[in-house]
Design a protein around this nucleic acid. Structure first.
Lengths: 232, 232
DNA sequence: AGTGAGGGGACGCAATCGCGGCATTTCAGT
DNA sequence: ACTGAAATGCCGCGATTGCGTCCCCTCACT
C-alpha cells in the first residue's frame, strides 16, 4: 500500500525539493504551506505521517501538532531551522516522534521516515481508520476518502468546510451540536470564527441539498442550542 | 453570563485601549498595572480569563502565572513585546494557554479570547457528565444530549429554559423545589428574575404536556412553597 | 369571608436565526 | 506570475422565537 506523507512548510523551495525526493522513494506527498491549511487537509483526509516545520504563519508546528494529537497518533517529524535546543526538546515533549535540523540531507530524512513508519505499523491505531471511514445515514453517504457526498444516490458537491460540518453533524444523528462544537470539528480548537459564519455554512449546505431534493430537512435548528442531524 | 477578564500591563496606553475594546465586546474588565497588585486582585475575586504582559515591575508575568496556577486553572494569554521566542516558549511550558506578539490587532485578541473561553467552558465543571445524562421518570424521558423530551413516547418540544426547569424538578421526584432553587438550576446562581417568571415557565410546561395528554398532572404546586414533580 | 398566592392571557423587548450580499483569500489553469 | 472563479468569513437586516413582566381572576388557606 502506497503511504501518504503530509509535508508542511512555508518555504516553497523545501516543499518542492523534499516532495520530489519522497515521491521518488514511492510515497505520495501532500504539501501545505501553513498550519491551518494543513490541519484542515489532514483532518479531512488522513495521512500516514507528517513532516512539520516549527515556524509557520497562522498556526505553527507545535500548535498543529497539539491539534492533530487530539484525534490521532499520527507519526510526526519536526523540522527546526535553528539549532535551538529548546525548540527541539519542547517539540518532543509535546509528542513529536522525531526531529531533524535544517539543513538536512534527504538521505537522513528518508531513513527517519522509514524508521517511524515501521514503528507505527506495529501499533497501527484503530482510531485512524475511523476518521476516514465511510459514513452512511439513511439516504446520506459521506466518503471522506474520496471527499464525496451523495443524497439519495445523487452526488452533492461540497466544499471542505461544508463537508467537515456535515460529517460532525451526521456522525451522531439526533444529537445536538452547539456552534462551538461544530467550530471545533471544522477548524480545530484554537480557531474562532463568528457564530454567523457557522450559520452561513449551514445555509449553504441546506441549499445544496434542497437544490436536488426540495423536501430535504434533515438539518434541524434548535433555538438557543445549536444544530442537529435528524435521527432516523 | 457576563465574563470578567483581568488585564495586566504596566503600559497605561495598552491598559485603556485594550480594555475599551474588551468592554465593547461585552466583557467586564479589571485592569492592573503590576503583577503583585494583579495577584491580590485576582485571588480575592476570581476572573474568567487573564491577559498578562511578560515584563512588569515587582512581579513579572511568568511569576504571576506560576502563582495563579497554584490554585486555579485560569486561562491565560501572554503578551510579548519582543519577538523573543524563548519568552513565548517558556511561557507555554509554564502553562500559558496562548500568547500574542505586540503589536497585535484588537481583532486577533478577541478571537483568541473567545477560543480560549470556549475551550475552558467545555472542560469546566465535573457536573458536565451528569448534566448530559439521560433522565427517565416513568413516562417521562429527558435526553439533554439530543435536547429531546418525550412523554408516553410522544415528543414534546421544549425550550432551553423549560428543559432545565423540568429536569431540575424531575431529578428528585416527590421533592419540593422552591422558586429560588429552580431559578438557580435554570439560570445559575447569579441571576435573579421575578418569582412569577418561574410560574410562567411552569405554566408553559404544563400546557405543552396537557396538549398531548389531557390528564397530565405530574407537576404539582405546593401552596406557598414551590413545585414538585410527582413521585411514582 | 378575607387575604394573598398562583394560573393564565397578553404584551413588548431581547435574543436568536436565516439569508443576501460583500470583501478577501485561495486555488487552478493559462 | 497573472487572472478569473470558487470558497470563505463576516456583516447587517428582517423575521421569528423565547422570555420576563404585568394584570386580572381564581383558588387555597386561615
Amino acid at each position: 500500500m502506497r503511504r501518504t506523507i503530509a509535508l508542511v512548510d512555508d518555504d516553497r523551495n523545501i516543499l518542492t525539493s523534499v516532495s520530489m525526493t519522497l515521491e521518488a522513494e514511492g510515497y505520495s506527498v501532500r504539501t501545505y504551506s501553513d498550519g491551518e491549511e494543513a490541519y484542515r487537509g489532514i483532518s479531512q483526509k488522513p495521512v500516514d505521517l507528517a513532516i512539520l516545520d516549527i515556524k509557520m504563519p497562522r498556526m505553527d508546528g507545535m500548535e498543529l501538532l497539539q491539534n492533530l494529537r487530539k484525534t490521532s497518533r499520527l507519526p510526526v517529524i519536526f523540522l527546526t531551522s535553528k539549532d535551538d535546543e529548546i525548540d527541539e526538546v519542547l517539540g518532543l515533549r509535546l509528542g513529536a516522534d522525531d526531529y531533524i535540523k535544517k539543513p538536512f540531507s534527504q538521505r537522513l530524512l528518508i531513513e527517519r521516515i522509514r524508521a517511524l513508519l515501521r514503528r507505527a505499523d506495529s501499533l497501527d491505531d484503530p482510531r485512524a481508520r475511523k476518521r476516514d471511514a465511510m459514513l452512511v445515514r439513511g439516504d446520506l453517504v459521506l466518503d471522506p476518502e474520496r471527499h464525496m457526498c451523495t443524497w439519495k444516490s445523487q452526488g452533492v458537491q461540497l466544499t471542505v468546510t461544508e463537508f467537515l460540518l456535515l460529517r460532525a453533524l451526521a456522525q451522531y444523528p439526533g444529537h445536538v451540536k452547539s456552534r462551538d462544537q461544530l467550530m471545533d470539528a471544522a477548524y480545530g480548537e484554537k480557531i474562532y470564527v463568528d457564530d454567523r459564519t457557522i450559520d452561513s455554512h449551514i445555509k449553504r449546505l441546506r441549499r445544496k441539498f434542497r437544490d436536488i431534493d426540495g423536501d430535504f430537512s434533515e438539518i434541524e435548528t434548535l433555538y438557543g442550542v445549536g444544530y442537529r442531524y435528524q435521527d432516523n
